[in-house]
Amino acid sequence: MTQHQQLAGLLASIEREMRLLELWQPVPPPPEALASTEPFCIDTLTFCEWVQWVMIPRFGLMIERQAALPASSDIATLAEEAFKQIDADTEALLVLIEEIDRTLRALH
């Protein structure tokens, strides 16, 4: 399995887990929220919104185009902090995000 295929599977699993936890939003945020220049759109989106509306689409495009993937990733550190604010069992979701970090680091 290629890294692109592995990443695609992880993204699908993350979406599935977010839906199960009712963290998946039915309506996108306003365009100006997505246009943030801050890392992870921290000033305009929650972490889960960023995952849904920024991370998954961007990785999806890279996968579709077979583009080079990032050389490193530390999304799990932010996820761990963000999930402390969520009243749900996010353990499985955190494991999936940690696996994205490991997958991207394994590329290089």
Rank of each mutant, 00 (worst) to 15 (best):
E91S: 14
T44G: 06
L78M: 12
T44K: 11
L93W: 05
V51T: 08
T2F: 06
F83M: 13
P29I: 12
R19I: 14
A92G: 01
G60P: 00
R19L: 09
I63G: 00
E22L: 12
A12V: 14
L96C: 01
E98S: 07
D101I: 05
L21I: 04
E91D: 12
I75D: 04
E22A: 13
G9K: 13
Q52S: 07
I97F: 06
R102A: 12
K84Q: 13
L21H: 02
P28L: 11
A82Y: 04
E32F: 14
A92P: 03
L96Y: 02
V51H: 01
I86P: 01
S73T: 08
Q25L: 06
W53S: 09
T37R: 12
M1R: 12
Q85Y: 07
D74F: 02
L11P: 03
Q3G: 08
R105G: 03
T103K: 11
H4Y: 15
H4K: 14
A67F: 06
S13I: 08
F83I: 04
L21T: 02
D87S: 15
A71N: 14
L45F: 05
I63F: 00
M18S: 02
Q3F: 12
L93N: 06
T37N: 07
H108Q: 05
L20D: 06
D43Y: 13
D89Q: 08
E17H: 05
T77G: 08
L107N: 08
T46V: 05
S36H: 07
M1Y: 06
W53P: 05
R105A: 12
W50L: 03
V95G: 00
L94V: 14
A33C: 13
F40I: 09
A88I: 06
D101C: 06
T46H: 07
E99R: 15
A8T: 05
W53R: 12
F83A: 02
E81S: 14
P70H: 06
L21A: 02
A79N: 09
V51S: 06
A8D: 08
R58I: 11
S36D: 11
K84D: 08
A12C: 04
T46P: 01
L11E: 01
L107D: 03
R16C: 03
P28C: 07
L93D: 01
V54K: 15
C41H: 14
Q3M: 10
I14R: 03
Q66N: 14
